[in-house]
Design a protein around this nucleic acid. Structure first.
Ligand SMILES: [Mn+2]
Ligand SMILES: [Mn+2]
Ligand SMILES: [Zn+2]
Ligand SMILES: [Zn+2]
Lengths: 145, 145
DNA sequence: AAGTTTATTGAAACGTTTTTTCAATAAGGG
DNA sequence: CCCTTATTGAAAAAACGTTTCAATAAACTT
């Protein structure tokens, strides 16, 4: 199959022993092309532009798969929970309340906070989720107008 | 009405101009008695033990209300999104992966991180969500056994 | 302590989101 | 190319959440 411009995620899928199908490749491409978090429905819509017979069920299944492999990450938000964004090295999201774009940001200085919590509570901390919400420069500008 | 052992949240509800109804009091009591995050269904079940004719719709409505007043906070988790836990002064959750208990921790030093992000990205940051996941001391002990 | 007003309630209907089932299909190894 | 079997999409079912509305009960007034 069209292994041509296979995104890096595709290789990871193969390596994990999964078949590289057209529907999956379509979903991967959509995720690759969209920094903002997309919900399953949106992925479905864009995916069908690439592979018209794509089914919504397959979108769900593929997202589950990718999430399990850590290739994609759920974005939680107050009004519309459960979007997905491809996971970079870091897992911290900066969400624009205006255009709903999701960016990742390097997270420095959280280790100290976590260490302090560990000492105060006795918990071992293995995972963390940090999301910042605000307005991107573009949305600030259009709001000022 | 039974204003007797009214939880602190009840007073806040009243102060905001809402009626202190039996169904609401039942929901408040359930939230008060449970540190772990509970989803609406679980709150409904326990709430009916207190006030049998409680409706699930009212649970949803009460949770929305409390969330709006900042008295309760959504807990996002990987396996069961959308639980609710009563919110203290601080808004950061420490979740035990073993027993699913939710505690809050004081969050110091995040301001610096947020300021750094603001400078690097140009975003204005108005909200943030920080959740730490790990194992509580008890669950660490039972896992070591 | 009753009467009055009006926010609030629960049942039912509805809409949306997600999962399950299952026969048909296509991926990829031989 | 053929074969095996993972994967697919449609349909049905289940889970989840919201809206509507007549009945109820909070809490203020008298
Ligand atoms: Mn980090
Ligand atoms: Mn969530
Ligand atoms: Zn924006
Ligand atoms: Zn625990």
């Amino acid at each position: 199959m069209a292994d041509l411009n296979a995104p890096p995620m595709a290789q990871a899928l193969r390596d994990a022993g999964y078949r590289l199908t057209q529907p999956r490749l379509a979903v991967l491409q959509v995720l690759d092309e969209n920094d903002a978090g997309l919900n399953p429905e949106a992925i479905y819509d864009r995916g069908r532009a690439i592979y018209p017979s794509l089914g919504l069920v397959t979108v769900y299944r593929t997202l589950d798969l990718l999430a399990e492999l850590g290739l994609v990450r759920r974005v939680h938000s107050e009004h519309r929970c459960h979007s997905y964004a491809s996971a970079g090295t870091d897992r911290h999201h900066l969400i624009c309340a205006g255009c709903h774009r999701v960016t990742e940001f390097p997270c420095n200085g959280l280790d100290a906070l976590i260490e302090a919590v560990r000492q105060q509570t006795g918990y071992t901390v293995t995972e963390h989720l940090l999301e910042l919400t605000g307005l991107c420069p573009a949305c600030q500008a259009s709001q000022a107008a």
